[in-house]
Design a protein around this nucleic acid. Structure first.
Lengths: 117, 117
DNA sequence: TGACATATATCGTACAGCGATATATTGTTG
DNA sequence: CAACAATATATCGCTGTACGATATATGTCA
């Protein structure tokens, strides 16, 4: 369990993961990171150097919006989905499903054709 | 049907598609391209500018090997899987399945939490 | 006091995938 | 037959994601 992925196998879909986590309710970066790691059983690490630029990118795209919280000693930047963001999840999810189906359509017969290990 | 993908949603997994197509038997580039397009109902275009560098990369990695065929007027470069390549398919497929499960685990409750369209 | 977890951010690097472009042959059609 | 489309491979420059390293600062606990 929890081995590393060939990283390129998962490119782009991190956006969808982060948006999904936010569909559950507002969160700040570090919480998002922990949630993704936990949900993936540590398989998807979602490094800080990946996450924060990703969040800035999503905000610039208008699919999430942020608000600083200085009430506690540790300052946190809370993110929530915008209406566009909610639409985005539905669109990306539909695309994702179709894409997974494409891979499956090629992969299933391929594995069957391979000599037994 | 057959709309364009947000391209970044599928990065890296093209390798696995190409390897899968070759599990079915040797093919040359153009055939691989047509097979992927057809199997994905034109959703995964697999452009020539993507395919050929990809094939060179896979060959350099030792997962496929090639042989030129000049017997016909049109010269074709036939590719086939190596033993390493067959192992690679199994490994990547297992990784892919786990990754898809991770996304699903986050996506399903997210879609449920979203207000009905 | 020192170590570790929390919390955000930026920088340089690596590299996949795309669109454009090049080149040459074969098949089709007006 | 000339023009065009399809077949077939290849390279180049660009864009953008993801990573690792690094920086900074606060909170907690031994």
């Amino acid at each position: 369990m929890a081995e590393r992925f060939e990283r390129e196998l998962m490119r782009g879909s991190l956006d969808l993961m982060v948006l999904s986590v936010l569909a559950d309710g507002s969160k700040y970066g570090y919480l998002i990171q922990k949630r993704v790691r936990e949900a993936s059983d540590e398989t998807v690490k979602l490094q800080a150097g990946t996450l924060y630029p990703l969040l800035h990118r999503l905000e610039a795209a208008g699919v999430i919006k942020s608000k600083w919280d200085h009430s506690t000693g540790r300052k946190r930047k809370w993110y929530e989905l915008t209406a566009t963001g909610r639409r985005r999840i539905r669109d990306q999810a539909a695309q994702w499903d179709r894409y997974v189906a494409c891979i499956q359509q090629l992969l299933t017969p391929a594995l069957a054709a391979l000599p037994a290990k």
